[in-house]
Structures are given as structure tokens and as C-alpha cells.
Design a protein around this nucleic acid. Structure first.
Length: 304
DNA sequence: ATGTCCCAGTCTCTGGGA
């Protein structure tokens, strides 16, 4: 089973690129973030023509998450199961907000959707950005991660994949220049602690498990030619529950999707391949090289 | 390089967010 996560930075603006990518990468599940659509505007019919069912949780202009699958899903859940539109603070959490940021509450935003597809619980998350360390927005980001951790603890399923834009670079090798990132969000001790707590609760960073090397990123600022200079960060991750770890056979970040025209998202998709449940890892495969070659994505057509 | 892209509303420009 191929599962991918991609912050598309507007599904409306990216529709053509997403369709081309589904055709090229052929995932069974695509977790999307920043669709920036209302549920009424979600392109269900377009996805159907591509052979995918679309589940969408949006709020309009900002945020928005979605899950596209090759077949029907069950047990859809959004917003950590908390009422959406009229958010209720979990009793165990407090959110210190003040001044003109009182209205800012990421737990009231469309940032989480879960579904079960062929026995795998898949979760699409879009973590808050945090803006500046020490601000109420940063505090709210940590609160949001605490809610995610609580939800995962309470909804533990042996086969769970949590993919999305975490807005956290887990380690220094996940940023182009750690020295230039000191004091910024995405790399702080607090954020990395939140990420580590997720791992400690029973998850593995799938891409990192397959690729120990640094210098591989999932996001590059649109400005200043940063992509072509590889000035980026690995902030999109696919966490898999430990029970799924033996089934992980391949993972990649598809930089090709960050290139060309029409305008790409500023994020690249992160892909994982899980072998089929109950099938021994090497069944049906002649060897590691062939296995990797078979999974490698074809080059996109010119222009993309 | 505070350099781009995307959105909605004030609507062919501006401001907010990333």
C-alpha cells in the first residue's frame, strides 16, 4: 500500500498538478493539507474521474485537510473528534491567549482528519506554523501538538499512519543550515520535544528510518530561488505505528513535484510504501535492487 | 534581498498568512 502526504498549498490552484501526480505516483492514499477550500467547494467529482474518493475537512480561506483513497473509507473523524465550528477546549488543556490574538485557536481550525482504509488508520494533519518563538501563536502550536498526542493515545490503533505538515524539522540534519535557524520556529527545543513525544508514544519517522542522510527536505520557500539552492527544511513527515514498521519497504520525498509549471506547491510529497498485511517482506520480490527500481517514480513529463 | 505564492475583499490593488 502506497501512502503519501502533500501540503498542496491550495487544492484549487494545484488541481492540475495533483491530478498529474496521482497518475504518476499512483498512491493508494493521498493525505493533503492546506486545501484552502470549504467543504462545499471540495472537488469530489474531479477526484472521482481520477479513480479516487475524496474526504475533505475545510473552512474556506485557510487550512483545510483531505484524504483521497482508491476505494471507500470508514470511520471518518475530524478535528480530533471535538465539535468543529464551535470548538470546545479539552479540559486538560489551557490556551493562553491575549490581546488581538484572542481569536486565534488552532484547535478551532481545519487541521486534522482521520479515516480507515483497508485496515490502516490514516491521519492527515496540518500543524500550526507558530510564527515566532515565544508568541501566543507559538504557545498555541504546542497546545495543538498536546491535543494530537492525547488523541493518538486515546485512539491507539495498531496500524496507524500520521502524515502531514508538522511544521517541525525534527533534527539539525533536517534544515539547510542549523546556524541560520537558531531562535526560529520549527527547530526549537519545545517543538522538537513535541515531535519526540509522538515518537516515544509508539511511532517511527518513516522517511528518516529509510534515509539516515541529511540534506533532504520537503519544503522550500518560494522566494529567492531557495528550491534551486536547496535551502529548505524537512517539515512534512509520515509517522507510522511501530506495528507497521516491519511492513515499511520504501520511502521517498518527491522533489520532482516541486519543479516546473504550472506553479508547484512550496512543499513536496512524502511517500511511504507498506507491503500487504500478512505477506512476508520479500514475498514476490527478486531482490532489494529490483524492489527499489520497481517503486521509483517515473520522471514527470516535460514542464513539470 | 523584506526576493513568491495564495486567498478574499477593499476587487486590476491591498493585506494577511506562510
Amino acid at each position: 500500500m502506497r501512502i503519501a502526504t502533500w501540503n498542496v498549498n491550495s487544492l484549487k490552484a494545484r488541481l492540475e498538478r495533483v491530478g498529474a501526480w496521482l497518475e504518476r505516483a499512483k498512491p493508494d492514499v493521498l493525505l493533503m493539507q492546506e486545501t484552502k477550500l470549504s467543504d462545499a467547494d471540495a472537488p469530489h467529482a474531479q477526484f472521482a474521474t481520477w479513480g479516487y474518493a475524496l474526504a475533505h475537512h475545510g473552512q474556506g480561506r485557510w487550512n483545510g485537510v483531505a484524504i483521497a483513497t482508491r476505494g471507500p473509507v470508514s470511520d471518518l473523524q475530524v478535528n480530533f473528534g471535538d465539535p468543529f465550528g464551535k470548538p470546545v477546549e479539552p479540559a486538560t488543556l489551557t490556551l493562553a491567549l491575549s490581546g488581538d490574538t484572542q481569536d486565534h485557536n488552532p484547535l478551532a481550525e481545519a487541521r486534522m482528519m482521520a479515516a480507515t482504509y483497508q485496515g490502516v488508520r490514516v491521519v492527515s494533519i496540518y500543524a500550526p506554523n507558530g510564527r515566532v518563538v515565544g508568541t501566543p501563536f507559538f504557545a498555541a502550536k504546542l497546545v495543538w501538538f498536546a491535543r494530537l498526542a492525547t488523541w493518538l493515545h486515546e485512539h491507539a490503533s495498531p496500524a496507524t499512519v500520521v502524515g502531514g505538515d508538522y511544521n517541525i524539522a525534527p533534527a539539525d540534519i533536517d534544515v539547510w543550515d542549523p546556524a541560520q535557524c537558531v531562535g526560529s520556529t520549527h527547530v526549537s527545543v519545545e517543538e522538537r520535544g513535541a515531535f519526540q513525544r509522538l515518537l516515544d508514544s509508539g511511532f517511527v519517522d518513516a522517511y528518516r528510518l529509510q534515509h539516515p542522510e541529511g540534506g533532504r527536505y520537503s519544503w522550500w520557500d518560494y522566494r529567492a530561488g531557495n528550491f534551486h539552492k536547496n535551502i529548505g527544511m524537512r517539515i512534512d513527515e509520515c509517522l507510522i505505528s511501530r506495528a507497521l514498521e516491519p511492513r515499511l519497504v520504501w520511502s521517498e520525498i518527491d522533489r520532482e513535484a516541486r519543479k516546473g509549471k504550472p506553479t508547484p506547491s512550496d512543499h513536496a510529497p512524502v511517500i511511504i510504501d507498506l507491503d500487504e498485511a500478512g505477506v512476508p517482506l520479500d514475498a514476490g520480490w527478486t531482490g532489494a535492487e529490483e524492489r527499489i527500481a520497481a517503486r521509483r517514480l517515473p520522471k514527470p513529463p516535460r514542464g513539470q
